[in-house]
Design a protein around this nucleic acid. Structure first.
Length: 492
RNA sequence: CGGGAAGUGGCGCAGUUGGUUAGCGCGCUGCGUUAGGGACGCAGAGGCCGGGUGUUCGAGUCACCUCUUCCCGACCA
């Protein structure tokens, strides 16, 4: 059931609607696919931000902020980088408007043309490395470990809420190191931070690995990624970390004096995750009743619904609930009492399920008499009668259970939909059914592109963690020898 | 930019071969009855039918143009 629902984007509209909507821009506006993140959606994003931010700081990084505008010349300093982004850049050409001489509103003042156009950042490598040039002089300045929370713009031809919007929010880390080994270690560390975040907070299992050459970031020597499986069997790239070698250091002339007094170019990494994580969260866990949020990222852990007939009942229920709420909040839980008196309980149940609140507590006269509550969990949709006594501790433990359970559910799903495939016939059949295929590949871009042309499947990653498949075999397409299996899938 | 589909109250839709005052469901407002899984009754509010130009006695309906949205490609976190 979930598979059917999740395979078509329109079925998500109901759930997405609480979180994000397409921006209502003026007619004729050339900007397509910008999003308005609603308060409830933004609350989830803030939780993600705070968690990630702490993880970055715990690994020695500091936050900074760099300009939105990038002079056009900066972008062209690294050849591969500009080639990768040139086709999707928004360009600022003028700095002033003027009243239209014919009296109809304003027009661009032709006299205010910029001598050099400004690019709205699609990513900040260039402007950051241009700045690092002045910050890095000595080996004592290294490593430089900086992260930026920002918005970026990529003028995509086709957009999709959360997954690919023209403007999106993200974080981008940019680090400089004295040695290649240190930079590689940093790139690996950060992809593992992303993997940990996905697994432990989003409850989304991910495969960690390297990108093939053709999927690599523009300007990178090596790209690490985490790949998640959505409920339709398609892959979603949820985060990337790049080893940039000395490409940007050379392009922006960033050299430092080593301990021997010799000038050397620094080694770089960059890494980022975006509001796309919101899409991953939704598509990995949602069911036919709406969102399912992992407790660690849910803005509201518990919603309490009083069931009453009279004002007196309402008052005594809410009083009792306030006490329980205070108890829970003291233990770090976020609790909402839904005491709206114009809606029936059944309506509220459905509404909070749609929002993905992990736990619901309903209390009526019967519970008041028996000292119990009706406790429902969002992940299993089951209901139990639980004593009011000790309810806060009960729920606290329940949060962990739910967190573990939805991770396990997603993991089981992925395992059921991940298979080793050794024949081209089976490849074509299974890729249509929404599987991750572990296949041998001859390592050539040519083969990769041919497979993509014929099946739309791409190499999501060359796994490097628990998925390592270091075993000799023959390429599923060309039959040439291969040393290991890689993950093929259709991707968002 | 190619190939499809669609634009009608806030949302989702109907509207026949052109024909009087453009309907329905949800939502919204008010009153009442209800309340342990998306309540019901009554009374209301809300629409230059995406825009333009034609054809016609008459256009939501036909023609042409244009704008927008969605789906499929190319692009992509």
């Amino acid at each position: 059931m979930a598979k059917e629902l999740t395979s078509r984007s329109e079925n998500y509209s109901q759930w997405y609607n609480d979180l994000v909507v397409k921006a209502d821009l003026a007619e004729n506006s050339a900007v397509r696919g910008c999003m308005v993140i609603k308060p409830y959606g933004y609350a989830i994003w803030e939780k993600m931000q705070h968690t990630l931010d702490k993880m970055f700081k715990d690994t020695g990084h500091s936050n900074a902020y760099f300009p939105l505008f990038i002079p056009k010349s900066f972008l062209s300093k690294e050849a591969e980088h500009v080639e990768g982004f040139a086709k999707e850049c928004a360009v600022v050409t003028h700095h002033r408007l003027m009243n239209n001489p014919d009296g109809s509103g304003v027009v661009v003042d032709p006299a205010a043309r910029l001598e050099e156009e400004l690019i709205i950042r699609p990513t900040s490598e260039t402007i950051i490395w241009n700045t690092y040039k002045n910050w890095i002089k000595s080996w004592r300045d290294l490593p430089l470990l900086i992260n930026q929370w920002a918005n970026v713009v990529r003028w995509e031809m086709r957009t999709r809420l959360f997954l690919r919007t023209a403007e999106f929010l993200w974080q981008e880390g940019h680090t400089a190191h004295a040695t290649a080994a240190e930079a590689v270690a940093e790139a690996e560390k950060m992809v593992s931070v992303y993997a940990q975040f996905a697994r432990e907070f989003m409850a989304v299992p991910v495969i960690v690995g390297h990108k093939s050459e053709s999927e690599r970031f523009a300007g990178a020597i090596d790209t690490y990624c985490i790949e998640a499986m959505m409920q339709d069997g398609k892959a979603l790239q949820a985060g990337t970390s790049h080893f940039l070698g000395q490409n940007f250091a050379k392009a922006f002339d960033v050299q430092y004096a080593n301990k021997e007094g010799n000038l050397e170019y620094v080694w770089a990494t960059s890494w980022g995750v975006s509001t796309r994580l919101m899409g991953a969260l939704i598509m990995a866990h949602s069911d036919d009743n709406g969102l399912v949020l992992p407790p660690r990222l849910a803005p509201i852990h518990v919603v309490m619904v009083p069931i009453f007939k009279t004002a007196e009942e309402h008052a005594s229920l809410v009083e009792k609930m306030e006490a329980i709420k205070a108890d829970m909040e003291a233990k770090g839980l976020s609790v909402k009492i839904d005491d709206r008196d114009n809606l029936r309980p059944g309506f509220k149940f459905a509404e909070w399920e749609l929002k993905g609140v992990p736990c619901r507590i309903a209390m009526g006269p019967r519970d008041l008499a028996s000292g119990t509550v009706e406790l429902a969990r969002r992940d299993t949709l089951t209901k139990d009668s639980v004593p009011q006594e000790g309810i806060a501790d009960y729920v606290l433990k329940l949060m962990d259970d739910i967190q573990d359970n939805i991770y396990k559910k997603a993991l089981d799903f992925r395992q059921e939909h991940t298979i080793k495939v050794d024949t081209w016939e089976e490849f074509k059949e299974k890729i249509e059914q929404g599987y991750f295929l572990l296949c041998h590949w001859d390592g050539t871009t040519e083969t990769e592109l041919k497979i993509q042309e014929e099946t739309k499947a791409t190499i999501r990653c060359i796994p490097s963690d628990s998925f390592v498949c270091e075993e000799p075999g023959k390429c599923v397409y060309s039959g040439k020898p291969s040393a290991r299996r890689v993950v093929f899938a259709k991707a968002y």
